[in-house]
Design a protein around this nucleic acid. Structure first.
Lengths: 272, 272
DNA sequence: CGGGAGGTTGACAATCGTCAATCAGAGTGG
DNA sequence: CCACTCTGATTGACGATTGTCAACCTCCCG
């Protein structure tokens, strides 16, 4: 059972949201104040806890304060497809908020906290404050861009390329979210969950990770820890071009986004 | 070479866009007037003509006036993945418009006409007129919902289910767009294009279509014509639940969306 | 009549899935 | 501290869906 807290535990619980929205579009001080003044409830979630279930009608928009979460759909034979992975600062449910009914589930990958903001407040602030609305819209468009890349990833890349691609995306997004170095991180998911994200089976994911290790593209001191020795090599193996993430200051073509000798992600993001 | 025309050829060239946006959110007469007053250029496109190429910076938002179009990405080994199919009345490029740089290509499936609306005008009207902005936002969110379903379709369904699903989606969207009966239509694409949309090969698509025919789920008087005798049977075979399309008046659970004895798509859409 | 694009089919190969056994590590209770 | 248990990771043997290659067919169009 999640323990619920209402009101501001600190002066800046919603700060991660502010930071992310500012990344997409310039906000003025009134925008910032309005954002941070949004009412919310903090919910402590256990591992695998459901934030939203497919079919639910939506009353709240969830901001991930800590931990990792996924969005998923279940198909007829009971198999699951993970359609997105989310980390701190991401608004997991802006998608469902406007539409009113969840067409997919949102579930915690790890334990963590979410801020539940009433849907009507989100909609109100988006339309009262064009800067905020624009930032939110862009945020959902980037999500959509990632979906498209995943369609291509799952539809047209083989297992090894596919997994390498996901590892690169995750690394870079961790970096952008300020959650660690892209060249060495702990995957917050089981191989079965990674399989559900890539349209493979856990057995095949295991073999593919082993193969990536044997090929020297990654090192794994334990099953979850991913160390990327040569970013460029992995990015090439994963056909990874960060353009679809629409990060600032990243060239459209494949660049040394992270690690290696070149400077890492060069976007200028206000660091908290 | 496309022949270009500027200005309003008729009083209501942009009418399909109005119709679609009104479907998502209520507009008042000022909204409608502002929409129809948008400047645009009509471009006549040949089959396979590119509307936008991946990497282009975006100056226009394209409204499909006639014909069919696709959005696609190319992966490293040269294979193509189609990530979306579009038909009359759809704004193919709202996605790219806000982001400024195309992360995918848009290409005509058939010959047709598009209205090119300057990107700045689209952005302006979206933020000057909240109703329009909201309708556009919802439109992009529904697109995103369809991407998610495609991820699940390609990642977790076998070839037969996958193709049946696409056939159902296409049928229903044709109906909603007022482009014909969902139970009998002409597919505007080759089997190779259908393969690129489903993450299969053209050979396997062919075999799967044959199998669907042999199973009595569809009839094909010619390679392109799809006749759906029993909608429910095909929808079941395709694990198709129209919820992700967010159509009005359609039950969240699988319903007799079209064909069969039950009334077809019951949404109340203003018919042009 | 000829050319070409797209559709259909067969033989065969390969990627990936299934089933099942074993192993490693974390948490629990005695 | 040590069985006990459970989840997740790893590995092998085998099978199945899907891909590849190539031939042939059909239809449309100049």
């Amino acid at each position: 059972m999640p323990d619920n807290t209402t009101g501001p535990p600190g002066p800046s619980t919603l700060e991660p949201m502010l930071r992310k929205l500012e990344y997409w579009h310039k906000l003025d001080s009134a925008d910032r104040a309005a954002l941070l003044a949004l009412p919310y409830t903090v919910k402590t979630m256990g591992q695998n806890g459901y934030v939203v279930r497919e079919g639910d009608s939506i009353a709240h928009c969830c901001l991930l304060l800590s931990g990792f979460a996924i969005r998923s759909k279940i198909v007829a034979d009971g198999h699951r497809q993970i359609v997105a992975i989310h980390m701190r600062g991401e608004m997991v449910d802006l998608q469902n908020s406007l539409l009113g009914r969840a067409d997919h589930s949102v579930q915690m990958l790890t334990a963590g906290k979410v801020a539940m903001i009433p849907r009507v407040e989100i909609v109100r602030i988006a339309f009262e404050r064009p800067n905020i609305g624009r930032a939110m819209w862009i945020d959902t468009l980037v999500d959509a861009s990632i979906f498209r890349e995943w369609v291509a990833n799952i539809g047209r890349r083989d297992a090894q390329t596919r997994i390498a691609h996901v590892l690169c995306e995750f690394a870079l997004r961790l970096k952008v979210a300020g959650l660690g170095e892209p060249t060495s991180y702990e995957l917050p998911m089981t191989q079965e969950q990674l399989a559900d994200a890539t349209g493979l089976t856990s057995v095949h994911v295991n073999r593919t990770l082993m193969a990536l290790g044997a090929a020297g593209l990654i090192e794994r001191s334990n099953p979850r820890r991913i160390v990327i020795g040569d970013w460029r090599k992995l990015a090439d193996a994963g056909d990874f071009d960060s353009g679809y993430l629409h990060l600032h200051g990243t060239e459209p073509a494949l660049a040394h986004e992270a690690g290696g000798g070149a400077p890492v992600a060069k976007f200028s993001q206000p660091v908290g």
